[in-house]
Design a protein around this nucleic acid. Structure first.
Length: 822
DNA sequence: AGCACGCCGACT
DNA sequence: GTCGGCGTGCTC
């Protein structure tokens, strides 16, 4: 018997291992311990193999870790699809579906051989060898343990030498735990203990009646109050020490059992739906009712179907999600809800939790490993009917899925920017097909891909064109910043209109959001004398000036985190005329504070929101009215519902437009539409002010008028003319090398090979060209864009070309359906 | 990704 | 002379 195993090592294909005599064939999805080189790693069974290919010496499975599937079979299927489609290894793809703690790697253990003992007693060895052998004479030890005993310098090399000389033997330790559950110890009274408790309770002098000490009698009384027992930690809090418990156990009055304790993410930060907004109870608009009827019919049909729910901001999509989910539960199937970044949009999770209670699990990267692990196991053990999570939740071990919701389906955070470079939305569709589910893609600004599919009839288009309660859309004003600069001079951050509106807004007791998709104080520093810029030494970007709390500020690289003090004189010509140009959120915050000293301002970006839960705290203070203005990056544009916000200011709509990316217009349109939708969600009318240097740009114009269809038509024409997605399939290939020349050469070589591999297929290779980030973390990067009709053809040509050049594989990244070209 | 091997410059 | 840097190949 043989098994095909996925191991968590990049680029490695499925490997075949022998199932040793006496062991059963492990089921598909079970984890096994296998030897790999000198290591022992966890692998996952993908299939049984009858007759392996000749040519490789097969090794034995060391141990079977699960006798039932760990990863469910359909998730293994899904992962295999991901591996193939996104040109990633089977093992690294499977890692995306694994809970924390699932990959167990036994440590290497070293022990003295007979020859080692002899060498130690013989005494004719160098002192460092003698010390190491001496440390091992006490018993086997791991490298970490040896570090304490022998010199750490060159330890691994020395150990390796001794292993090859036969003085030391190497093996692997047995994994101690196969799961990362947290166990707690619970103390409870035994039958005798209950008797004693009763005697104590009936007596005037309990201690004398029971023959125990006063303290022990108290402890018995405490335990008598809880039939299920108490955790040792809880007892300690009530003055019962561990020592006392031990004494009572010795007398046979108390027993201790181990129990699994679930780490509940909801317990840490209880989330309630926004008060005043009772999901699931509000009466539906006619449009919502029609949409609901359609979606319910698709649920009842129990077949695979994709619906694109195109609803303007504030049209009540969440309400619909909830009601469709209810229907799915009524027919006994399960629901998967994907959201872009749950840490930023707890609203959806709260709504589902509120409606469905404890049979809801959440899965996202903001959870601790322990919480994520426990949630995963709850799902797999069928304790959950609804999973709400970010992109990786698409691999949740949930059975019989009848509905998959992808909220804000256009959002770029569905794309994973490391291998496997999958798009959660697209994987969701594959999963829906696999389990015969309805997939609902929801967005006010659908991606070009999804809308095209809807127009072509592949997806059912379900429109929601009106806002609930017929609330009007925000009135949008575009401010031409060129005129503003002419008036104000220099670098205008806040236009007069925005500053005045902000002032008036706060004076009325209302709230405002200011958006700028760029962090820091200033974007760059340059010398007016020689033109030199203050750049990152490792990456091809200028350093961003950050001020932190006080002081002159530091330049920081947003890609590699390099940081240096901002110089006062030019590093090249030593001239004193350094100028800071461009501005980010820190500068906006400072300007708002200066112009509106009475305003209570908070900044929300990656710099201020490092701490876990920091966002929650700012958002709840904002909701409570303790903050007037939030200045932030796109973090604040997503999903939140703030009824008291009546003014939204976009400091610069041009940030995204400058990027060398064919999706720049689409992104700008989406962001502006979303952010304008943040204003006026309560009873008060909203207003949005958009500052730009290009007031005529179609993204900006059409976003202001919320004209999605017109934007789509315009943009699709551009994509067709330029042969970009969704009109063609696109694969981005980035080659890294220690020098620019080598990166260019290798990429050129690769381009020629891809063209040769493709043969007559309809395929075009653009490049090589320097990647938009030509240098990153000290490596030079060049790029090929491969366009074609069939992804399969492109992928196969690229894969064969890469494989043909030795050593290129580890320096090449293949991105199928890239979302960002950086 | 590890890990081993092997080549080369930098020291005692 | 060895020590230790890192480029290259291999992992059933």
């Amino acid at each position: 018997m043989f098994a095909s195993i996925a191991v968590p090592v990049p680029f490695l294909p499925l490997l075949t291992y022998r199932v040793p005599e006496g062991l059963p064939m492990p089921p598909r999805g079970a984890r096994v311990l296998v030897p790999l080189g000198t290591r022992q790693v966890t692998g996952c069974v993908v299939s049984a193999v009858d007759s392996p290919e000749a040519g490789v010496a097969l090794r034995d499975i060391v141990r079977i870790l699960d006798d039932a599937p760990f990863v469910p079979g359909d998730v293994v299927d899904l992962v295999q699809w991901v591996a193939e489609y996104y040109a990633a290894g089977p093992g690294e793809s499977l890692s995306a579906a694994m809970p924390p703690g699932a990959w167990i790697e036994p440590e290497r253990i070293f022990a003295l051989t007979d020859a080692g003992h002899a060498a130690l007693t013989g005494g004719s060895v160098p002192s460092d060898v003698e010390r190491l052998l001496g440390a091992l004479a006490g018993g086997p030890a791991s490298l970490r343990q040896l570090e304490g005993a022998a010199a750490a310098e060159g330890l691994d090399r020395l150990v390796r030498t001794l292993v090859s000389e036969g003085l030391v033997h190497s093996s692997h330790d047995a994994p101690r735990r196969l799961h990362a559950f947290r166990n707690v110890r619970i103390a409870a009274l035994t039958v005798q203990g209950l008797d004693v408790a009763r005697i104590a309770a009936e007596s005037d002098d309990p201690a004398a009646a029971t023959g125990l000490s006063v303290r022990q009698t108290e402890a018995v009384a405490v335990l008598a109050g809880s039939a299920e027992g108490e955790t040792l930690a809880a007892l300690r809090a009530r003055g019962v020490t561990g020592d006392m418990v031990r004494r009572l156990v010795a007398r046979g009055l108390v027993s201790i059992r181990e129990a699994r304790q679930e780490r509940d993410p909801f317990a840490m930060s209880p989330i309630e739906p926004v008060p005043g907004d009772r999901p699931g109870q509000r009466e539906l608009t006619g449009e919502q009712a029609t949409a609901l009827r359609e979606l319910r019919a698709l649920v009842d049909a129990r077949g695979f179907r994709v619906a694109l729910l195109h609803g303007v901001t504030g049209s009540g999509k969440t309400e619909l999600y909830l009601r469709v989910a209810r229907r799915v539960r009524e027919i006994g199937r399960r629901v998967l809800v994907l959201v872009p970044e749950i840490a930023l949009t707890p609203a959806v999770a709260a709504v589902f939790r509120h409606a469905f209670g404890s049979r809801v699990a959440i899965q996202h990267s903001g959870l601790s490993d322990g919480e994520r692990h426990d949630q995963w196991h709850r799902i797999r053990d069928q304790h959950v009917d609804i999973v709400v999570g970010t992109r990786s939740a698409v691999f949740a071990p949930l059975d019989d899925i009848g509905l998959i919701i992808v909220d804000e389906e256009h959002d770029s955070s569905y794309k994973q920017e490391e291998t496997p470079r999958y798009n959660g939305r697209d994987v969701a569709i594959v999963r829906g097909r696999q389990s015969g589910a309805l997939v609902v893609l929801g967005s006010a600004t659908p991606s070009m891909e999804s809308y095209r599919n809807a127009l072509d009839g592949r997806y059912r288009l379900v429109p929601l064109q009106r806002r609930v309660l017929d609330r009007p859309l925000a009135a949008v004003t575009v401010v031409n910043m060129r005129e503003e600069i002419a008036e104000q001079g220099g670098e205008a951050v806040l236009s007069r209109l925005l500053a005045d509106s902000l002032d008036a807004c706060i004076k009325r007791g209302e709230q405002a959001l200011l958006l700028l998709n760029r962090r820091g104080f200033a974007s760059a520093v340059f010398c007016r004398q020689c033109g030199d810029t203050f750049d990152c030494p490792n990456c091809s970007v200028s350093l961003t000036v950050h001020h932190g709390v006080k002081g002159p500020g530091r330049g920081r690289c947003h890609y590699c985190n390099y940081s240096a003090a901002v110089p006062t004189t030019c590093g090249k010509c030593a001239g004193p005329y350094l100028e800071q140009v461009g501005f980010g959120t820190e500068r906006v915050e400072a300007d708002v504070r200066k112009r509106l000293p009475h305003a209570r301002v908070a900044r929300v970006d990656r710099d201020t929101m490092r701490r876990r839960g920091a966002i929650q705290s700012v958002l709840s203070r904002f909701a409570a009215g303790a903050i007037d203005v939030i200045v932030g990056t796109q973090m604040i544009a997503k999903g939140h519902d703030f009824p008291a916000v009546t003014l939204v200011g976009v400091i610069s709509a041009d940030v995204g437009l400058g990027l060398p990316d064919f999706r720049a217009s689409e992104r700008t349109f989406q962001l502006l539409t979303q952010v304008a939708g943040r204003a006026g969600r309560g009873t008060l009318p909203g207003r949005a002010i958009i500052q730009t240097l290009f007031p005529e740009h179609y993204s900006i114009q059409l976003a202001c008028r919320q004209e999605y269809a017109a934007f789509y038509d315009r943009e699709v024409g551009f994509r067709r003319a330029m042969r970009y997605p969704p009109m063609v399939a696109l694969v981005n290939v980035v080659v890294r090398a220690p020098s620019f020349g080598r990166a260019m050469n290798d990429a050129g070589d690769l381009a020629a090979r891809i063209r040769a591999e493709a043969g007559t297929a309809d395929l075009r290779v653009l490049g090589p060209a320097p990647a938009p980030l030509g240098k990153l973390r000290g490596e030079y990067r060049t790029q090929l864009l491969v366009k074609g009709v069939s992804r399969r053809t492109i992928r196969e040509a690229v894969m064969r070309a890469v494989a043909a050049v030795p050593d290129l594989q580890r320096r090449t990244t293949v991105d199928v359906d890239p979302l960002s070209m950086l």
